[in-house]
Amino acid sequence: MSDNFGFSDAPQHAPEDRTLTYLEAITEALFVEMDRDEDVLVMGEDVGGDFGGAFNATKGLAAKFGDRRVINTPIAELSFTGMANGMALMGLRPVVEMQFADFISSGFDSIVQFAATSHYRGIGKVPWVIRAPSDGGIRSGPFHSQNPEAWFVHTPGLKVVAPSTPADAKGLLAAAIRDDNPVIYFEAKPLYRSIKGDVPGGEHVSEIGKAAVRRSGTDVTVIAYGTQVHTALDAAERVAADGIDVAVLDLRTLKPLDTEAILEAAIKTGKVVVVHAANRMVGVGAEVASLIAEEAFESLDAPIIRIGGLDTPVPFSPPLEDAYRPSAGKIESAIRKLADY
């Protein structure tokens, strides 16, 4: 297969250059998986035609695969997600684009009531993926900045992934498409064009349910996912000059959690900061912190610190949003507090 997938608007790269942006990696996964399996199709608002989605993630797909496989939908999240349930029961593998993760609440019944329970109740497998462009920090206000992953991590029967690198953006999307369960794929909008990385060509599948150590360290462990992995790595650099050696664990999958990797990372340093951009209350960080408290209490040398969004809607104005969000500075303070503990 050629690198531009036979279509001039698709991302183009010299064969030896496998450095892609996070967004290009998402598009590449869609091209590769649709090319590989005729059961894979894409649907959502504005995904079809020449337009290719609000963020251009599906650009070029309609030209290559046709309107039947790249289905433009009306504004009807509840029912087009419900339609994906029926398609999936019939053996298709629809990839549904929520234009923004914030709008996923409009499709809630189809996701948490039908799709999530269907296999348990003997109805059948529902192998779809919902791509949910999430996260803020890009001055988009309360309804284009949310991180609603906790709702779905709380729901039995769903898998939830949140890549932080271009390689994982491709590999976890491919894995989600191939998985026989409904998978919600939270893609971080702030990373779309801000990071580039090496991405394997052709078929590339990352394993769902496996965390990755992004930085080794002996003093404090920061556990994060999505955008906050990069914020945590920045914070780790800031304190390195002072001799504080920070480890960063990227969860990559939020459900099922890689409990083994979490406990190993916590036990190694005995001091843990958990960071996510979603608000703290009953967030993924609460689950990670209680897991460590239950299973590794004897190995802890300090209280676990959770950093997340505030318990407010996501505010728009820059000073307000900055006050709301985690930052390298906030993580740095937490690391220093634990290092001194």
């Binding site: 289905i71 029912s79 349930n85 029926g86 019939m90 039908f114 329970t117």
Partner: peptide, 17 residues
């Protein structure tokens, strides 16, 4: 499921398949 009429979009999805 009890969330009526969830069966409508589901069956429509089967028809789309």
């Amino acid at each position: 499921i009890s969330h009526i009429p969830q069966a409508i979009p589901t069956a429509l999805g089967a028809a789309m398949a």
